[in-house]
Every structure is written in C-alpha cells, then in structure tokens.
Design a protein around this nucleic acid. Structure first.
Length: 855
DNA sequence: CATCAGAATGTTTTT
DNA sequence: CATTCTGATG
C-alpha cells in the first residue's frame, strides 16, 4: 500500500527527537494512521528503524520542562468555568458538564493543555471513552488543536480497547496467551449453549442468553467465579457459580476472552500483581475519563487503581445523562466522586450553547422530577426561539405521516423559519421497532433518510462467516470459528461428523482443526464423502495459513481467494434468495476493507473491538436513531415520537428496575430533549402497530412533566377531542394540555393536521379523555385493515398490468407478476419477489411528464 | 444428511 | 412480523 510521502515536522527540525514540541505527522491517502507509517516516522527520527515501543520509551525519558512552551490561545475561547476545568490539572477533578455545555471541548482542550504545557508526554496520558465514536472524535479534535501528536497517544481509546492492549501484554498472568481472541456475543452464546447442553441443562428453562446476561452482570462488578454472591447462583438450580467457573475455564482453554473479561482480567491482574499495577500507575501521570456517569463497578475499580499514584484524574460526566444502568453503569460512581477521591474539585459547566430557552426549560422541567441528582441549572444566552411543540395522533402511521410532512415543510422553509437541511433533522425513538413506521412512510414519499445504529456491518451473517474463515486461517486453534464454518457452505459434515471431531479433540486434547486432521487420516466416524470434504478443508487452511505467514504475503488477495476456494462465495452466488447479491456485495466490501490493515490479525483485532457501522453515505438525509444512539449528538430540529406510557417510559424497564428504572427513562427523555438546538416536537399516538397487533396506550407521564409555559400544544379540534372545556383542576397535571388529535384515517383524508391547530383546553388526565382514549382504542382494534395507510391512487394500479416494469424506492426495478386489487406481486431484479402496494411503485421507463398516460 | 414447512419465540438500549 | 428453531420428509 502506498502511504504517500510520510513527512513530519517538529519544532526542532527534522532529524531530531523533538524536545519542546511534538511530532507532527502528515500522511497521504489513508484515514487511519497505519502502524507502518508510524514506524517510518520513528525510524526517521532515530535514523534507524527500531522497535517502535522502545523509541517512544526513549522519548519519554527525556525531561519535561516545567513551564509552558508556548502561549495557549485556546484558553481565551473558553468561558470561565470551562477554563477552570481545563486548567485544574492537579489532583482529582470532577467536571459536571450539562448537556450542550461544551463537554467534549473541555476534554480535548484539557488534553491539549497537558501536552502543550509538557506536563506529560502524550503516551503518559490515559484518556478513556465508552464508544469508539467518542474516541475517534477526540482524536480528531486533539489533532486539530495540537497538530497531529495523536499517534503518540497510544492510551486514548475505549475502556475495552485500552484494556485489551494491557491484557495482551500480561495475558500469561491470567493463563492466557497474548494472542487471545475476543469473542463476540454470538460466539459467547454458542459456547454457553454447548456448556449447558453438555451438562444436561434444560435450555428451555435456563436459556443461554440468561446465563450470558448474568455473567455479564458479574463481570461488570469485577466478580470472578469465586466472588459471586450465593443468592445470585440460582441459575440451573443453584449451579450458577459452578457454570461460571466452567465457562471461564473453557474460555481459557480456547485462549479467548469475552468483552467483560477484558476489564475483569485487567482488574484482577492489578489486584494480584503489584509490580504490574505500579508500572501503569507510574506511567499514567494524567487520567481523563469521558462520560463518567456510565462507568460500571469494574471500570470504577480499574480507574481507582490506576489513579492511586498520581491522583491526577479528571472525570467528565453528567449524572442527568446516565442512561446505561441496564448495562451495569452505576450512577453512584459519579454521585460518590467527591468521597472516592479525597480533595476533589467539582466544576460545573452550566452555560448551554446548544438550545433555546424554551427547549432548555422543557428539559429542566422533566429532569427536575428525578430525586438522585447532583443538581445543575443550565442557562443560555440564546434568544427565545419557538416553543416545544406537542401533538397527539390517532395511530403510529398517522404520526409518521405527520412528521414526514413536517420535515418536508421545514426543508422547504414553509414552516415560518428559514429552510433547514435534512441533515439538521433527526427523529429519536425509544425502541428500534418504531423506526419501521418512519422508514415505510419515507420510502413512500421519497424522503431521504438514514438509520443510524442499525444492524451493524460486522454482525451480518456473511461477514461473520467470512471472518470465521479468516480467524481459523490466522489462528488454527480458534475452535469456535472453525465450528462455525466446517459445514458452511454445506460439505456434508453434519451433526455426526462434528460430534466425531469434537470427541477426537476432547480425547486427545487438541484443537478442532487438529482433530479434523486426525479424523481425516483415520477416517473415524466419517463417511467417505465427508472425509474427503473435510480433508480438502483442512488442506485449505494449511495452505492459507502458510501463505499468510509468508514474508511477502498479500493478505487482501489471500483473503479473497480463501473465500473463493472454500466455496463460500460460490454458495452465495448459487443462492437465489433476494438478499444474496447484497451479501456478495458485503463480502467484496469486507475484502476491500482489509486494505486498510497491514495483516489479517490487525484487522481481526480491530473488528472485535470496533464494531462500527459502515460509514454513512453522502447526501442530505433525515436521521433516524434511538435515543441511546443520539447521546452526544445535536440537531437543529428534533422529533421525539412515541411518548406513550409503556413505550416511553418503557414498561419493561419499570418492571425490572422500578423507580430507579423510571428515573433512568426520565434521563433518557432529558437526553432526547437536549439534543435539539432550535426546533423540538414531541408526539404520541393512541394506537401503535406492534408485532403486527394494534396496541393502544396513554400519553407518556413525561408529557405531564413538561412545563406548560414552554410548550405549544398543537391540538386540532379533533373528532373526539373537543368538548372537555375545563382544564385540570389545580395542582398536578398539564394545564393547557392537548387532546390527542384523534383523526381517524378511515374518515379523513391525510394531513389535515397542519390547518387544524387551535388549542383546546382539555387535559390528558381528565377521566373523560382516558375513557374516550380507551374506547377509541378498543374500537380501533376491530377496524378492517385494508383501508389504512396511503390512499391508493387507483390510477396507478389501473394502468399497470402483469409484465409492466416498475420502480420501487426500496427494492429497485422489477416486473409485475400479479395484481390483486391495490396489491402487486412484483419480481424485483435485486430484491426478489415481493408484495407491494401499488402506490409505492412507479411505472419505470417513463418520463415524469406523463406523455402516454391513458386517461 | 439436506431441505422445507410450520412453530416457536422474541424485540430497548451496546463495548 | 421476521428471524430462528424444530421436526418431518426426501
């Protein structure tokens, strides 16, 4: 690969290790900075190619000067609180950064400040985040501030990535080899299933997922198999801890770890090996933690151990945005910070640069209902802006339709403000199934959208299969990967054959691949056909492994060939399923992605930790994502649909975690509200399409918590809503609240909402509304389904006939095979045969100016 | 041993 | 409803 000219600059000029500055790297053509290029720089610096680690060690040994090497222009751009947060370099610091108060900015500036003042070399600073996105963003922004020293910051990353790095160095201390593989959830479940079925545990009564969840919980608390509290061992009749131990042992023999292990093992190493701990305590002169409110107990212990020496730990977070409790996060960590780190400074960032006062007030109003808070008061200098809008709908389809129209209006600029780009708008949902209604609707009206955080590239079936091939080729001992692909594509190696291989592996204490080799030689338990197929496979892996080991190995080419030679590519080519072409395309993409890496190992390591989505395509699009996924983002316009009790707050969370769960849901609402800069619209629907059933619900209790003064209620005098003249009698409840806009799609056309906006003065809390909502909901359930949805353009169906070529937004081109009323059966070229509604397709191959329309 | 049909089953959020 | 799992059949 060509990295272009790798050049570097420093304050001292080329050829010397920069003493008063930092390395500045430029590279051409590649986004991620490849290791090889970094080595080139180190070699340049030293005049010789040397071990990169050693080179940096050398560098670190040089004395740090005490004073700043240059003025710090970036400080002037910060407000006083932000400055304080940046400049409080010594001792423990907690920065309570409310939403939109410039948290990332403070964090990155602080990091730059440390480097700028030469308090520490970049490699002596530990900076941890939760998501890869956050880590990447931080790298980029520091790059802008400091000018490219980031590559000298090896300890900036997610908790998991940093732990993986540490664990690789000390793997032997916990009985692993440093080449251990990191299991993903899928492998983990498969492994547990094997374990349980081997022990004759009824998989129905004690599902593997459940056990995985328990293991996760334990690991989040840094509890090894011996430390599990006895009352939590109820699994499989009190054998929980026993299986936990067995699971851990199994992982060890496989030389593998799961996500939780990354932290657990490192914490245990720190606890049991003082020398190792000391080394890292010394190394990390400064520690920065992003999103501290999301840390779990294991991460907390990890940080405490590491910070014990220098005590220069700075945690940034917002207790009001703690939304990962279900994943083991402990809000308690941030609430307890001052006690945990004696003499800690607490700095509050309260000036909000993002939202208008109305939006801020709405968010504050909601979050104020929570009890467990450190408390902050956000304020802004921004001008009034428009109120938060609130609207109710008859059902989820209507909601999607209305939002679609609203978005189009905003994009056109016919909503009373300047036209907004689609990129500036986002729909934030509680649960991903809500996305569907929007996707369907937007496809129908041709509105460009993008789903963030959807199914991830690396989680797709074909990608994981392909990676299993890579894994076995790289490390032949990877039994889980081998198991995954022995019979994919079909090689006639079914249960019987696999059991035979397993037995051999167990009896001889060898890996599955070795066992397979033995099986081929002895022919034990295999049919002739099977033996031959297995022999081919084993030979294939031998060959690929050898090829990858060669000095001039072209891993991209080998990987591609591996998929071809194994018959995997052919399998999909032969598959006539509609998604087969897409899968092949994904495989091509995968192989292409390998180019970014020096070798397959590097790629696999990257993938196991960075389960990122493929980068989003260009073009202005509305974003659709979950509330969780929206944390840290902001948009000029935000839509928050589905504010209904049971959905949001989620029934399940409340059932599982009670009042605590409700508070977390409320924080989630707070996160959602504070994503908006200028325009915010909350909506709810009386009926919702869920698992093919219609479900009815009442407006979310959070709606009652919105301060009325900052909310504009869009309440058309709906068919059923009017007439409840009085607002709620004193005290609680939402004063001038909306009546659900109960427009029944059977009776009305679409989109009458915009015109009908006069406020009525009823309240959701009124008994009348509830009664009415319940009645309508029941009624709605019995309605015939066909009439729902878009009004069918009879003309469209009329002029189509079997054989017509049509175009569909989602499926592309195809030919009509059958017509039943408004439903078409279309054989799509890419997507295969689908049933679609006639109005969703257009006749293909005709100019938009209807020239030959037979009317 | 593969394939298919029908049933079961599950859907919040993720490193 | 959409995927995964099961069991019956070829």
């Amino acid at each position: 690969m060509n990295y272009g000219a790798v050049s570097w600059r420093s304050k001292t000029g080329p050829g010397e290790i920069p003493e008063g500055g930092w390395i500045y790297c430029e590279h051409v053509g590649n986004k991620s900075f490849p290791r090889r290029a970094r080595r080139a720089i180190v070699a340049l610096m030293n005049g010789t190619e040397r071990d990169e680690g050693a080179a940096f060690e050398d560098w670190e040994q040089r004395p740090l000067s005490e004073r700043a090497s240059a003025p710090a222009p970036y400080l002037a751009e910060l407000n006083p609180a932000q400055q304080a947060a940046v400049e409080a370099l010594d001792g423990p610091v907690l920065v309570l950064a409310g939403a939109g108060t410039g948290k990332t900015r403070v964090l990155t500036t602080r990091l730059a400040h440390l480097i700028h003042n030469q308090r520490a070399w970049p490699s002596q600073i530990l900076a941890v985040t939760f998501t890869n996105k956050a880590a990447r963003e931080m790298k980029e922004r520091i790059g802008e501030l400091v000018g490219g020293a980031v590559e000298g910051m090896p300890w900036l990353g997610t908790f998991h990535a940093v732990c993986a790095r540490i664990l690789r160095r000390h793997a032997e201390l916990v009985g692993l080899k440093s080449t251990f593989t990191i299991l993903d959830t899928d492998d983990q479940i498969r492994l547990i299933k094997q374990l349980l079925s081997a022990a004759n545990v009824d998989e129905k009564r004690w599902p593997a997922r459940m056990f995985a969840a328990m293991v996760d919980r334990w690991k989040n608390r840094a509890q090894g198999p011996g430390q599990v509290p006895p009352d939590e061992c109820g699994f499989a009749n009190g054998r929980g801890a026993e299986f936990y131990a067995a699971y851990q042992a199994r992982l060890k023999t496989l030389n593998a770890v799961d996500f939780g292990d990354l932290l657990l093992h490192v914490v245990q190493i720190f606890q049991n090996h003082e020398d190792v701990l000391k080394e890292y305590q010394k190394r990390f002169k400064y520690i920065l933690v992003d999103e501290y409110q999301d840390t779990n107990i294991a991460q907390y212990l990890w940080l405490r151990l590491l910070a014990a020496e220098h005590r220069n730990i700075c945690c940034v977070g917002d207790d009001d945005q703690s939304i990962y409790g279900w994943r083991g996060a402990e809000v308690g960590n941030i609430l307890r910070f001052e006690r945990d780190f004696e003499g800690a400074q607490v700095i509050r960032l309260e000036q909000n640069y993002r939202s208008t006062p109305h939006i801020l007030a709405a968010a504050s109003g909601v979050i104020a209902a929570n009890k467990d808070r450190l408390g902050k008061t956000l304020w802004t200098e921004a001008g009034e802006g428009e109120k938060v809008r609130l609207i109710g709908h008859w059902d989820s389809d209507e909601e999607a339709r209305w939002i679609g129209e609203e978005i189009e209006a905003m994009a056109r600029g016919t909503r009373g403000h300047a036209a907004l780009s689609l990129d500036g708008m986002a729909i934030l949902v509680r649960a991903s199934f809500q996305m569907r209604a929007f996707e369907d609707r937007f496809v129908a009206i041709g509105l460009a959208y993008r789903v963030l955080g959807g199914p991830r590239f690396y989680e797709r079936l074909e990608i994981r299969d392909a990676m299993a091939y890579f894994r076995v080729a790289v490390s032949p001992d990877d039994g889980l990967a081998f198991e995954r692909i022995v019979n994919t594509p079909k090689r006639g190696l079914g249960d019987k054959a696999q059991q035979a291989i397993n037995a051999i592996a167990r009896d001889n204490g060898v890996s599955l691949l070795e066992a397979a080799r033995i099986a081929v030689e002895t022919g034990e338990g295999l049919s002739k056909r099977a033996a031959r197929a297995l022999g081919d496979l084993v030979a294939g892996f031998d060959r690929w492994h050898a090829e990858l080991g060669a000095a001039d190995a072209d891993h991209v080419e080998i990987a591609g060939r591996m998929l071809d030679e194994s018959g995997y590519t052919a399998m999909w080519q032969a598959d006539k399923a509609p998604d087969a072409p897409g899968r092949l395309e994904n495989l091509r993409e995968l192989v292409q992605a390998l180019e970014e890496f020096e070798n397959l190992q590097g790629f696999l390591e990257h993938v196991s930790l960075v389960m990122d989505n493929a980068s989003d395509e260009a073009g202005a699009k509305v974003s659709i994502m979950t509330l969780h996924g929206a944390k840290g983002l902001e948009f000029p316009a935000i839509f928050l649909p589905g504010w209904e009790d049971g959905l949001f707050p989620s029934q399940r969370t409340m059932d599982e975690s009670g009042a605590k769960g409700l508070e977390e849901e409320r924080r989630l609402a707070y996160v959602g509200l504070t994503r908006a800069r200028a325009h915010l619209c909350i909506s709810f629907a009386a009926n919702r399409h869920k698992f093919g059933r219609w479900e009815s619900s009442l407006p979310s209790r959070f709606i009652d918590e919105l301060p009325p003064a900052h909310v504009e209620v869009l309440t058309p005098p709906g068919l059923y809503g009017g007439g409840y003249g009085a607002s709620a009698p004193g005290g609680g409840g939402y004063g001038a609240a909306a009546t659900a806009q109960l427009i029944d799609p059977h009776d009305t056309g679409q989109g009458s909402v915009l015109e009908a906006r006069a406020a009525s003065a009823s309240t959701y809390n009124s008994p009348g509304w509830r009664r009415m909502a319940a009645r309508r909901a029941k009624h709605g359930l019995g309605q015939p389904r066909e009439a729902r949805g878009v009004v069918i353009d009879a003309g469209a169906a009329g002029r189509l006939e079997p054989g017509s070529r049509v175009f569909h937004q989602k499926f592309g081109y195809g030919r009509v095979r059958e017509i039943e009323g408004d439903k078409l059966t279309v054989a799509f070229e890419k997507a295969g045969e689908k049933k679609v509604v006639a109005s969703y397709v257009t006749e293909a191959g005709k100019a938009s100016g209807a020239d030959e329309v037979p009317f």
